[in-house]
């Protein structure tokens, strides 16, 4: 759901550009205090995987497709701050090198996909892990958290389109949530599958992001 330039008005994209700069500054300051050396190679391959996976649109309904976004996966593995930084980097590369997502709308895309999605996904996963303990809970929790993260990001996007005066909220919200409720199922499956692959090969990496500190 990369917003191109032209969908948002100046007050909306400038506000979110400022918010995004603030998030990056706070996340970078936090990384300098808590980011462990062990998280460095994981962040690099995770960013590469998320970039590649975001190219792979899968059909969800007649004429509509979606792709993995990765916010919940990054937050589950690294915590929401470092996870959000990984998504931010992917979004910056996509906007600058590939023209995917607007330059002025970059802050809005960072807010939706690198702040809202990781924090909602991380919060939901932490709560669900308390309810569903054990290994099955890891995958059920990851699936549900990833679905919720995508739907939350889509809701934020709908709110921005409404605030910008592009389309009324009562129109944008059901349409965005409807489409992304389907796309979120794919997000959930890929998130759970990625965690299963890591658990099978490097289970120690699943504990890096615990307590939000990678």
């Amino acid at each position: 759901m990369h917003i191109p330039d032209g969908f948002l008005d100046a007050k909306t994209f400038i506000t979110l550009d400022v918010v995004a700069v603030g998030f990056v500054a706070a996340a970078a300051a936090r990384a300098r205090r808590v980011l462990s050396e062990r998280a460095v190679p994981l962040m690099a391959v995770l960013a590469a995987f998320i970039f590649a996976a975001q190219m792979l649109n899968f059909p969800v309904a007649g004429g509509t497709s979606g792709h993995f976004a990765g916010g919940a996966l990054a937050a589950i593995l690294l915590g929401p701050w470092a996870g959000g930084l990984v998504i931010t980097l992917v979004l910056v590369i996509q906007a600058l090198a590939f023209g995917d997502g607007g330059m002025l709308a970059l802050g809005a895309n960072v807010f939706n996909l690198a702040v809202v999605a990781p924090f909602v996904g991380y919060g939901a996963y932490s709560l669900l892990r308390k309810v569903f303990a054990g290994e099955a809970g890891r995958f059920v929790g990851a699936f549900a958290a990833a679905w919720l993260a995508v739907v939350a990001a889509a809701s934020a996007c709908a709110a921005e389109l409404a605030i910008a005066g592009t389309v009324p909220f009562a129109v944008a919200f059901p349409a965005m949530v409807g489409a992304h409720a389907l796309i979120g199922l794919g997000e959930g499956v890929i998130t759970a599958a990625a965690l299963a692959a890591i658990r099978a090969s490097r289970p120690d990496l699943l504990e890096l992001g615990r307590g939000g500190a990678a």
């Binding site: 759901m1 990369h2 917003i3 969908f7 391959v45 590469a48 995987f49 970039f51 590649a52 996976a53 190219m55 792979l56 649109n57 899968f58 059909p59 969800v60 004429g63 509509t64 497709s65 979606g66 792709h67 889509a154 996007c157 944008a172 349409a175 965005m176 489409a179 992304h180 796309i183």
Partner: peptide, 24 residues
């Protein structure tokens, strides 16, 4: 695996509008 996805699978990705484009 990531490079393989980005290079070998991406040409076969769906070209339908994504969720936001569809709504737009």
């Amino acid at each position: 695996a990531a490079v393989l996805l980005g290079a070998a699978v991406s040409p076969f990705a769906s070209e339908w509008l994504d969720g936001l484009e569809r709504v737009a």
